[in-house]
Design a protein around this nucleic acid. Structure first.
Lengths: 274, 274
DNA sequence: CAAATAGTGTCTCTAAGACAATATCAC
DNA sequence: GTGATATTGTCTTAGAGACACTATTTG
């Protein structure tokens, strides 16, 4: 009779071939633009962090931050570590998007990826200050379906415009998977990962607790509303938005003045809402 | 200048240590019990497929069906293949639950697992007939939170009762992760995987399209209702349930007779609802 | 006829959307 | 004052839950 101890001593995992495993992260931020009118509130844009690849494969193309899973960490820890390495910001929250495991997805070999959405607040990025010489850049995101059912993922940074085309494949449980028609200068299958991440983020943006992670500690309700509108590409009546979020926030006694209109009260996240 | 081709020829993934990757599947079925009363509709139970481990580690304990990812398949294909191997049924639908990647989760070494929920219809299982001599068995599932916030996962098959205890850990995005307090004769971290799968399934059971996968081609509306009630552990008024599902089903002209009460019309899933 | 489910119609309640009206500031 | 946002309050509507009532069967 062989004991468990004996068995484990003789057990050799290397009998099976193993894939490399990476975590790739779609780090999103809401960026407030400069004011164009002294009294008008600024516009805001959803932005995504991309890294310009320095080496082969896909040299000089843009890719999601990510890296190989190490032996002493969980894959969520790996995702957080990768974001920290690129931005110097440790995100408060990450959300799984899915596993991308098509055998041919990486020309370097058998590499599967677990993808995450991460929310970064603009305030945190500004505080640490990103290295301008770095290959990491924040791209403005646009993601829409045209009349033929083709999704256009457009990522813009200065004069760099990346446009990927994707189609939608229904899988079970009402979920969709994106198929890349044109990867638009994005490396690997990252266009499909970003599409899935955006779909997940838009869906999650109904949850007020989630999108509060985009905001600094103190914020106005219209800034809060702008976050939801920017992500979901909808517009909400301010009166209704206030009612909806009332249980998620608490007033402070501070105001934002000097905006050319009535000062807005600053609010804080309510820790234990409901 | 090194070409991409050259680079890839010299690239060697084996510089990095790699984990083994498995897919583990929580295959659920709704089992109709025998009638206890000539006129009363039968009760139904949510069941989960478990395999008795024949070898070390966790010899003679119960585990989820699953297996190692192969080089020519996606991880979803791997999950479907494993279920097919155990049940002879190819499930219509699988849903991701999460990645379990704690370095010490498997005594055999560095093995991470991607977990799935799969819905199997009782009709399909009956048709192929499961090998009774097999180590695979369907366990009835009960999963509830007690007053102290401890979750009790109780799996029952004949005289075998497995009870695992878990606590809930809040992670970001309103998600929870379960921590095993007592694994209750379940192998590896499978108690936590099952808890996560049940949480996902209960949440998904609000979606009528999803739970239709538990049913045969033709079904009564009360059978449909029973599925939702069994999974979510709630009760719904029949009149309201009918209204809610009306856009998901179409009538047939067949009836179920001989039940000691008014015959029920059989319905079919509407392919393109709304 | 009794007991069970099958099936229809209607009332109520509530949460979300629409909208009207007022408040307050910088220029 | 003008034009912008901030803030409050109310009306409307759609959807879900509650419930009353009828229909149909078998022992």
């Amino acid at each position: 009779m062989d004991s468990e101890k004996e068995f484990l001593e003789n057990y050799n995992l290397s009998d099976y071939e193993r894939p490399s495993v990476t975590a790739d992260v779609c780090a999103f931020m809401i960026r407030s633009e400069d004011k164009t009118d002294y009294r008008r509130n600024p516009e805001s844009k959803l932005q995504l962090l991309l890294i310009k690849r320095g080496g082969h494969p896909y040299k000089d193309m843009w890719a999601l931050p990510g890296g190989f899973l190490q032996k002493d960490e969980t894959i969520e820890e790996c995702a957080l570590r990768e974001i920290k390495e690129e931005t110097n910001v440790l995100p408060v929250s990450i959300m799984p998007v899915g596993i991308f495991s098509k055998p041919e997805r990486d020309p370097r070999g058998w590499i599967i990826s677990s993808a995450y959405v991460s929310i970064i607040s603009e305030e945190a990025v500004k505080q640490v200050g990103m290295d301008d010489a770095s290959d990491a850049q924040w791209f403005s995101v646009s993601f829409d379906r045209d009349d033929e059912g083709v999704y256009h993922l457009i990522l813009t940074f200065d004069n760099t415009v990346l446009e990927a085309l994707l189609s939608e494949e229904k899988t079970s449980f009402g979920r969709t998977r994106f198929k890349i028609l044109d990867s638009g200068y994005l490396a690997f299958d990252h266009a499909a990962i970003i599409a899935a991440a955006l779909t997940a983020l838009r869906n999650e943006a109904k949850n007020y607790d989630t999108i509060l992670d985009f905001l600094p500690e103190k914020f106005t309700l219209s800034a809060f509303q702008k976050v939801q509108e920017t992500i979901m590409n909808v517009s909400v009546l301010p009166a209704n938005f206030r009612r909806m979020v009332s249980s998620y926030v608490t007033e402070t006694d501070e105001y934002v003045r000097g905006e050319g209109h009535r000062p807005a009260k600053l609010y804080k996240r309510k820790t234990n809402n409901k």
